[in-house]
Design a binder for these strands. Sequence first.
DNA 1: TTTTTTTTAATGCGAACGCATGATAACCGT
DNA 2: ACGGTTATCATGCGTTCGCATTAAAAAAAA
Lengths: 201, 201
Amino acid sequence: MPKLVDHEQRRRLLTEAVFAVISTQGFEAVSLRDVAQQAGVSMGTVQHYFPTKQQMLSFALSHMRERVLARLQATVGALREPTRRDLIRAATAVMLPVDPAGREEACVNIAFFSAATVTPAYAEQLRDGYGRILAVSIANFREAARLGELRDGINPDVEAPALYFLTQGLIGPILVGLYRPDEALALIDAQLDRVFRPPSS
Amino acid sequence: MPKLVDHEQRRRLLTEAVFAVISTQGFEAVSLRDVAQQAGVSMGTVQHYFPTKQQMLSFALSHMRERVLARLQATVGALREPTRRDLIRAATAVMLPVDPAGREEACVNIAFFSAATVTPAYAEQLRDGYGRILAVSIANFREAARLGELRDGINPDVEAPALYFLTQGLIGPILVGLYRPDEALALIDAQLDRVFRPPSS
DNA sequence: TTTTTTTTAATGCGAACGCATGATAACCGT
DNA sequence: ACGGTTATCATGCGTTCGCATTAAAAAAAA
C-alpha cells in the first residue's frame, strides 16, 4: 500500500522474523518463504528489501550484534552506582541464555558461528563483534585493577579473556540442557570471587 | 561387487565423508549426493546403509563422539608417567582445534550444537557425550586433590567445570580466527598454574 | 488530476533436494 | 554348479528451493 516506509526499519523487522525462524526451526530451515510467513508478508516483500538470501542473513548477523550490544548497554546502564565487579558480572550474565530473548540470541549466534566456519564473511563479522566485546571486558578489568578492586597477583589481561571465554563456553551446554543457568552463574561468581577482593569492610 | 562387507565399518566410512562435507561446505549443505560423491560411491549406496538422512546424521553424531574419545584416550595414553596436571592439560588440549583433525571435529561439533537447539535427539546425544567427558574431568581433578597436587583452597568440583567450559568457549573463537591456538593454550596454562601447586622441590 | 515511483503480491522457472524403484553384478550356502 | 542374498548403481518422482518476472495498488510528484 504505502510508500512512506522506513527502509532500514523494515529490514530490521524482517530480520526479527529471521531470528524467530532460526531459533525455532534451525538455520538450515531458513527460506525466503518461511521468513515471509513468519513476518506476515509475501515472499515478494522479502525479496524487495533483500535482493538475495545471503544479503538477508548477513544483515541479520549485523543486526544481531546491535541487539546484543543494546541489551548489554541497557542492562549495564540500569545499574545504580555499580562497582566494577557489578558491571562485569552484569555484562557477563546478559550473554547467558537465561530468558527467552537471551536464548533466541544464543541460538542465532551459535548458528552463525557454525556457518562462519565455512563462510569467511560471517567469520569476519563475528571476529569484529566479539573482538569488540572482549576489548570492553579487558578495559573493564584494567579499570578494576587500577581502582585496586582486584586481588594481589591478578592480571587483568589474563582474567578478562578467561572470564569471557568461560562465559562463551557455558552458552552451548545451557542451550542443550547439559548445564543449568544457575549453575553457570554460580561458576561465574566463583570465578569473580577469586579475582576480586572481598568487599573490604 | 562384494557381499563380504562389514556393515558398521562401511557406515563409519560414509560418516567420515559426512564430516568432510560438514567441515568444508557446512551443515546445511549436507546432501545425500554430496556425501556419496565425497565417499566416492553412488547415491544408492548411501541410501543402502542409511535409510534416511536423519539416521545418517544421527549416526554421524554418535560416531563423532567415539572419534573424540578415541583421540583423547590415544593422546592421554601416550604420556609416560604423567602427573595429574599433565593428564588434564593433554585432555584439554586435544579438544582445541589445533590440527586439521581437531579443526574438523570442532566444526562438526559446533554444527551439531547448533542443530541441537531445534533437534532434541541431537541435544540428548550431546548432553550424554559431553556430560561423560565432564565427569571424567571432575574425577581427574578430585584425584589430583586427593594426591595433594592442588593448591590450598582449590575446589576440584568448581575448577573442573571451569576449565572444561573455558576450553569449550575457546573453540569457537579459534575457529573464526578471533583467538590463536597458542593464545588459548597460554590461557589454559595460566588457569592450571593457578590451580596446581608449583612443581614442589 | 495526471503521472511517476515505491511497495506489495502473485506466479513461473530451472535446479537441487530426499526418497523410491528397478536393474546389474558379485559373493554365499547348499 | 546354482539359486538366493546382498552390494552397488542408475534413474525417476514429487517437492521445495532461490530467484526472476509481472501486475496491481497506493502515496508522492507534477
